[in-house]
Simulated scan of single mutants.
Amino acid sequence: MHAHALEPQKGPVSGLPLPRYVSLKSDRVNVREGPSKEHPTLWIYERAALPVEITAEFETWRKIRDSEGTEGWVLHSLLSGRRTALVAPWKKEPQLLVAEDRKTPLAKLGPGVIGNLRDCDGKWCRIAGKGFDGYIQQENLWGVYPGEKFE
């Protein structure tokens, strides 16, 4: 009866799924209260590659939410489709990065470390950054949906 509710929403501007994860393209991104330059700047991100979730679209503007749940509007040109993730920002302890066998420990990554997502199989994601490249459990990353798969 309500099967259509399961269809992912499509953004009215981009035609891409909503919500979706992207990353900040620049290391200076103004976040505004509403979708125009007339709206006041609420804060400025200074962390390129930070993953954010797009929750709405309006013309050249995208409403984003970060890992702390903070929301605001940014110009779409400041966002990149490149997928990144934060290592469990909600946890206190570092998370284990393992080799392709999913067993051999390679490193421990502290909460909030940013890495580039290479691929995810729904359970594990390959993540790489400065001095690390390996696999981490998908549930310990912010920037990818539970069970999401991509290459």
Rank of each mutant, 00 (worst) to 15 (best):
I64N: 02
I64G: 00
I64P: 07
R65D: 01
D66L: 11
D66N: 15
G69D: 04
T70E: 14
T70N: 14
G72P: 01
G72H: 04
W73C: 02
W73Q: 03
V74N: 06
H76K: 10
H76A: 14
S77Q: 02
S77Y: 05
L78H: 14
T84C: 06
T84K: 06
V87W: 08
V87N: 08
W90I: 01
P94K: 06
Q95D: 07
Q95W: 05
Q95L: 03
Q95E: 12
Q95M: 08
L96P: 05
L97T: 13
L97I: 14
L97H: 12
V98L: 14
V98Q: 15
V98M: 11
A99Q: 09
E100L: 11
R102T: 10
R102D: 10
K103E: 15
K103V: 14
K103M: 13
T104E: 05
T104H: 05
P105C: 09
P105D: 10
A107C: 06
A107K: 01
K108V: 05
K108E: 13
G110C: 09
G110M: 07
P111N: 07
P111F: 08
G112C: 01
V113R: 12
V113D: 12
G115S: 07
G115H: 00
G115F: 01
L117Y: 11
L117H: 10
D119P: 05
D119F: 08
D119Q: 07
D121A: 15
D121M: 11
G122V: 08
K123E: 14
W124I: 02
C125W: 03
R126C: 05
I127A: 09
I127M: 15
A128F: 12
G129T: 06
K130L: 00
G131N: 15
G131T: 12
G131R: 11
F132W: 06
G134T: 14
G134E: 13
G134P: 12
